[in-house]
Amino acid sequence: MKTFLLMLMLSTTASAQDAPPTRAAFEDLVGIVGVEPAGTPPADDVVEAITVDIAEELRCPVCQGLSVADSQTETAVSMFDRIRELVRLGYTEQQIDEFFIGRYGEWVLLAPRATGFATLLWALPVFMILAIPLVLLGVSSARRQPEKPKDPTPPGPDDTPVDPYLQRVLADLEDS
């Protein structure tokens, strides 16, 4: 079903896909994106595959739970068409992601990048997997370990004093 809908969507936009961008259209698009394409325009027969790959990683802002590739809302279709235009001009996946992040924020990425607060999302599960066994190990060893007995014998008269001043006083007393 998903493939059928995708084919339907692609067939309805085939005319736009076949038309090469004019110089003016190219300059307009570069002006909108803000940077020149970093890559070279791909062959026509791989444009759609690249477009779908990129669209699958971007969130549809209307339905939110679906990717741009999966959603059939007009907004998603418009985004899909924009991705295709950018791919055809040679924009890289990273540049296209940046274009949409610049409009919708990092939120538009279905898989958040491991930067800033999102780092916590990636690091926390790993941290938990490592930390839980350590804590459990600590608890069980603390339970097994018998409590150290307190020193029952206070220092007796035979104990050697450690205070150097006291040692000198004692030595003086013995001499006298």
């Binding site: 802002p61 907004t75 279709v77 418009s78 068409d81 610049g102």
Partner: peptide, 11 residues
């Protein structure tokens, strides 16, 4: 085709 809305990030 809603291009302007995409360029402005309309949701």
């Amino acid at each position: 085709a809603g291009r302007l809305a995409v360029d402005y990030g309309v949701t």
